[in-house]
Design a binder for these strands. Structure first.
Lengths: 325, 325
DNA sequence: CTGAAAGCGCTAACAC
DNA sequence: GTGTTAGCGCTTTCAG
């Protein structure tokens, strides 16, 4: 029996007699033989590897997305490569010709990092599939929550509770990784207030850098205003935790003195009774990985990959940090 | 100029005239040429890839270790592959002959998963370097905190505060991934108490599964005892957070009614004032990655890889959840 | 110090 | 359906 037949049989290609295939598979199992990945990569150009590009791995949000991606890709037989692009702000490193992206990976999931149309085109030209989370690029499958709606939900809840002087803790002036998330959430927040003819003072938005410390400092800054807000919208739970610290340090009680709402429904939100807007981050990771798997399958079959934009729901979770004014 | 010379020049091998090398490097930069990773893998057997094997990616501890590993490996020019072992309890999948471990990776960092002597031997026989975190195997470089000491620090602190009836929240009866961590911490805890002639009631240890929910349930179970402990040692901060929830639910105040100490110094510990024992997890990841880099370098140079066991320090961080009895 | 040539272990045309 | 034969793009002897 020739190597070619074995190769075909093992990969489920057509033009192999059922009986032949059966025997090959059987013997392969017996010998626990499988194709050398390095060799098939070189010969076929297929890597059986998926690459996740994240700004950082520490941080609840990214870690959970990656966990979701890893779980489904591993299940599907792909290796998963993790690339942290730290503060480099873009994808240029892995797009450089010398990096040989297409020799390293079959698919890319890019998390909360802007992918320009040119970058997407270049990736696709190399035969690499692409999906994004948190940001959308024309013609590439993506997953993102409706951040405008997130902002609206926060504003509506706070306004329903009778709050009129509202603040927010969000991204920095200099958005490090192109988090347009902050902009959208704040826009939704302001919009919902406007619809109610409530005013929103944009100077009551403090940068919180999506970290506990940043949230703490932002809350301190807000409390130091001449007229501090009676309620604040933290754009992530981690920043809300920092805000809680700041309140505690001043002897203020969340809910009683200042209302607070976050976003994420982090495991610890329950611990401190944080009212928040839930998103199921690990599920987002799994979902976007499945999108990628489909795209790679299509490419392998020679058809155009489907373009799907997933917008998973978010949900208000009422706990005790936001109360009637 | 022949391909062989270029190959040698670019990889810094000897037997290349300085002038030749200079020109090659120059032209390569100009063309942004670099060797195709798939091809060099096949030809040289070197992958320039490091694999991190973790029980899970969600969870603060693992995510941070991986972050540390990724940062230094990427810096050193290695791709980093992440393999979640989930509940499979061991490394068998990646050790199977068919997986071709040595064709996928140059080095392995295995986190909190038992590596038997045979497994280590098999890995090393394939020319793959190995380092571990949290557990140690003979002859393989590792990093772990002194978990016995962690337990002692907790016990000493609580005993110093006058507590005499102590409980602990730790691993499960059926240790899922071979966390001997729990055993060691509890052993150190009991030992420190014994040295002070204080008794430790082993039935006051409840499994908490290293999760918030698990910690909560464990604390509930402890509170339901006929004689509940006045202080409890949670073997991780995440479990301590769950314990805090349980206390809140019963209207009990941490510190005042029941003292609590954790382990990790999670970002969130400051938020709730959790007294804890700090370990710098991301640094652990970086440190173990450097160990691996050295080992791989040695292997490449044909020398025996050095075996180093790092035991980074831990540190008591006094906050407000543990107070005088 | 440099070049020629033989693989690394597969996959993909192309014949049969 | 199956076998044969070129490569995939490097690295690595081995001559020179």
């Amino acid at each position: 029996m020739s190597v070619a037949t074995v190769s075909r049989a093992l990969r489920g290609l057509p033009n192999v007699a059922a009986s032949t295939r059966r025997r090959v598979v059987e013997v392969a199992a017996e010998l626990s033989y499988a194709a050398d990945p390095a060799a098939s990569r070189l010969a076929a150009g297929r890597t059986s590897t998926v690459t996740v590009v994240v700004p950082s791995l520490s941080g609840w949000y990214f870690a959970n997305i990656v966990a979701g991606v890893e779980a489904v890709c591993a299940e599907a037989g792909y290796d998963v490569l993790v690339v942290g692009i730290g503060s480099s702000h873009d994808l240029s490193r892995i797009l450089s010709k010398a990096y040989h992206l297409e020799r390293r990976t079959d698919g890319l999931v890019v998390i909360d990092i802007a992918v320009s149309d040119e970058a997407a085109a270049s990736i696709s030209a190399r035969g690499v599939s692409l999906t994004t989370v948190g940001r959308v690029t024309d013609g590439v499958s993506s997953l993102r929550v409706d951040n405008v709606q997130v902002g609206r939900i926060a504003a509506d809840h706070l306004a329903d509770l009778g709050h009129r002087r509202l603040g927010a803790i969000g991204g920095e002036q200099d958005e490090p990784l192109g988090f347009e998330v902050s902009r959208l959430r704040v826009a939704g927040f302001a919009d919902a207030l406007a619809r109610r003819n409530l005013s929103f003072d944009p100077t009551l938005v403090e940068g919180g850098n999506y970290s506990v410390d940043g949230g703490r400092e932002a809350m301190v800054a807000l409390l130091d205003r001449a007229a501090p807000p009676t309620a604040v919208f933290a754009l992530s739970d981690e920043m809300a935790f920092g805000a809680l610290m700041a309140l505690n340090e001043r002897g203020l009680s969340p809910g009683r003195d200042v209302s607070l709402i976050g976003v994420d429904d982090h495991e610890f939100s329950r611990v401190v009774g944080l009212t928040t807007i839930r998103q199921s981050v690990t599920d987002h990771g799994s979902a976007v990985a499945r999108l990628l798997l489909h795209a790679m399958e299509a490419i392998r079959a020679g058809s155009a990959p489907p373009v799907t934009h997933l917008v998973p729901p978010v949900e208000l979770v009422v706990r005790s940090t936001a109360t009637r004014n």
